[in-house]
Computed example of a mutant assay.
Amino acid sequence: MTIYDLMTAFAVGLVCLLIWQNAGFRDRAIALAKQHCEHMDVQLLDDTVSLLSLRPKRDKRGNFSIARRYEFEFTATGDYRYRGEMTMMGKRLYDVELEPHRIH
């Protein structure tokens, strides 16, 4: 086994680890989006979120963390789809923004 083979195996393992870890964060993001939508008296559509960006960012304490931005769709009346975005710092919810929407 050469050093190239070891480096390739390490890179493949690292990519697999990141994909597996990101799936856990996505599940957490879905749960947080549902919770926030219930709190705002709107309905999360399709029970899904999609990753918009992933970047290092400083948290409120000045420590570096990975900021993940997700987007989702919701409805307030059942007639229209609106867009929402949420930012997570690590596993914690950092910010949620909902488009202006009609209230039933």
Score class of each variant (00 low, 15 high):
His101Val: 10
Tyr82Asp: 11
Thr87Leu: 15
Leu45Gly: 09
Glu71Gln: 07
Leu52Ile: 07
Tyr4Leu: 06
His39Gln: 13
Ser50Phe: 04
Ser53Asp: 05
Asp47His: 09
Val42Tyr: 06
Ala9Ser: 13
Arg68Glu: 02
Ala33Phe: 01
Phe74Met: 11
Arg28Trp: 01
Met1Asn: 13
Arg102Ser: 12
Ala29Asp: 08
Phe64Pro: 01
Gln43Asn: 10
Leu51Asp: 05
Gly90Glu: 06
Thr87Cys: 09
Arg61Ala: 15
Gly90Pro: 01
Leu45Lys: 09
Asp79His: 13
Glu85Gly: 05
Leu51Ile: 03
Arg102Ile: 11
Leu52Asn: 06
Tyr82His: 13
Tyr82Leu: 06
Arg102Gln: 12
Trp20Phe: 13
Val49Trp: 01
Asp59Ser: 15
Cys16Ser: 14
Lys60Thr: 15
Gly62Trp: 03
Gly24Trp: 01
Asp46Thr: 04
Met40Ala: 15
Thr75His: 04
Met7His: 13
His101Cys: 10
Thr77Arg: 02
Arg61Trp: 10
Asp27Ile: 03
Leu14Asn: 13
Glu97Lys: 10
Ala23Phe: 04
Gln35Ile: 00
Leu18Met: 08
Met7Val: 10
Tyr94Asn: 15
Cys16Glu: 10
Leu52His: 01
Glu85Trp: 02
Glu38Tyr: 07
Ala23Cys: 02
Met40Ile: 11
Ala29Ser: 07
Tyr94Phe: 14
Ala9Lys: 14
Ala76Arg: 07
Leu32Met: 08
